[in-house]
Measured scan of single mutants.
Amino acid sequence: TFYNFIMGFQNDNTPFGILAEHVSEDKAFPRLEERHQVIRAYVMSNYTDHQLIETTNRAISLYMANL
């Protein structure tokens, strides 16, 4: 899942690491979701930090390219 992918960046001092920290603390994050459209919609609806949203979009693109 995307959640498992992004958790691989925990403790990294990178934008993906920052995203992983936010996702791990977000109890409502769709952890079992595999459809990138649902993940993107969730982030757009629940996150207000523009940098975090952009990082999510980049992470989703990388995740999709590696499926």
Rank of each mutant, 00 (worst) to 15 (best):
M7V: 06
G8L: 12
E25S: 13
P15H: 09
H36S: 13
Q37L: 09
E21D: 12
D49P: 04
A28Q: 12
F2A: 00
V23H: 04
V23G: 03
I6W: 04
N11M: 08
Q10Y: 15
R31S: 05
H22V: 14
E21W: 14
T48P: 07
F5P: 00
V23M: 09
A65H: 10
Y47A: 01
P30L: 05
L67A: 11
L19N: 03
E25M: 14
I60N: 00
G17V: 04
N57P: 02
S61P: 05
A65V: 10
L52E: 01
A59S: 04
V38I: 11
S24R: 15
D12L: 11
E33R: 03
T14V: 03
A59C: 04
I53R: 10
N13V: 06
R31H: 07
E33G: 03
L19P: 02
E21K: 15
A20Q: 04
S45E: 14
N11G: 15
F16W: 05
A59Y: 06
R31E: 03
G17D: 02
F9L: 04
M7C: 05
D26I: 06
D26Y: 06
Q10S: 10
R58K: 12
A20I: 04
R35C: 13
M44H: 08
H50T: 13
P15W: 09
R40T: 08
D26W: 02
N4D: 14
V23C: 04
N66K: 12
E25H: 15
L67W: 08
I60D: 00
D12T: 14
E54A: 09
F2V: 03
D26V: 14
N46Y: 08
F29R: 15
Q37G: 09
P30G: 01
Y42I: 03
Q37K: 07
N66F: 15
R40F: 12
T48S: 11
M44F: 09
D12A: 09
T56P: 01
V43S: 02
T55G: 03
A59F: 04
Y47R: 01
L62V: 10
E34F: 15
D12I: 07
F2T: 01
V38P: 04
T1G: 09
I39K: 01
A65E: 14
T1L: 07
F5N: 00
Q37A: 11
N4Q: 14
G17E: 03
Q37F: 10
F16L: 10
Q37Y: 12
N4A: 13
A65F: 10
T56Q: 02
L19W: 02
S24N: 12
K27W: 07
A20P: 01
T14M: 03
F5E: 00
A28K: 12
R31C: 06
I6A: 01
D12E: 12
E54R: 09
Y42G: 00
D12H: 12
I39W: 03
Y42M: 04
E21V: 13
F9G: 00
S45W: 06
Q10A: 12
T1K: 05
V43Y: 03
Y47Q: 02
N4W: 11
Y63A: 02
T1M: 04
E21P: 03
A59T: 03
N4G: 10
S45N: 14
P15G: 07
H50Y: 12
L62E: 08
S45Y: 07
S45V: 07
I6E: 00
T1I: 05
R58C: 11
E34G: 13
H22N: 05
I6M: 07
I53Q: 08
H22K: 14
S24W: 08
M44P: 00
R40P: 01
K27T: 11
A20S: 05
T55D: 04
F5R: 00
E34P: 09
I53G: 03
I39N: 01
E33H: 04
S61T: 12
A41N: 12
F16M: 10
P30K: 02
Q10K: 15
S24T: 09
T14A: 03
M7F: 03
A41P: 00
Y47F: 07
I60E: 01
T14R: 03
H36K: 04
I18R: 14
N46P: 03
L19Y: 02
D49Q: 07
E34V: 15
Y63E: 00
E33F: 04
D49M: 06
F9Y: 09
H36R: 05
I18T: 10
P30E: 02
V23T: 02
L67G: 10
L32G: 12
S45K: 12
T55E: 05
N57M: 15
T1Q: 03
A59N: 02
T55R: 04
Y63M: 08
D49L: 05
T48H: 11
F9H: 05
H36P: 15
L32Q: 12
V43H: 02
M64W: 08
P30C: 03
T55A: 11
Q10H: 12
M64T: 09
F9I: 03
E54F: 06
E25W: 10
L62W: 08
Y42E: 03
E34S: 15
T48F: 10
F2M: 02
F29S: 13
R58T: 07
P15E: 14
Q10L: 15
N13A: 10
P15D: 13
Y3L: 02
Y47E: 01
L19M: 04
H36C: 15
Q10T: 09
H22D: 03
F16T: 01
E25N: 15
S61L: 14
R58V: 08
E21A: 15
Q10P: 04
V43G: 01
E54C: 07
E21I: 14
H22T: 10
T55L: 12
E21H: 15
R40S: 08
E54Y: 07
H50E: 14
L62G: 03
I18K: 14
L19T: 00
R58D: 06
Y3W: 07
L62R: 06
T1R: 06
G17P: 03
D26N: 03
N66M: 15
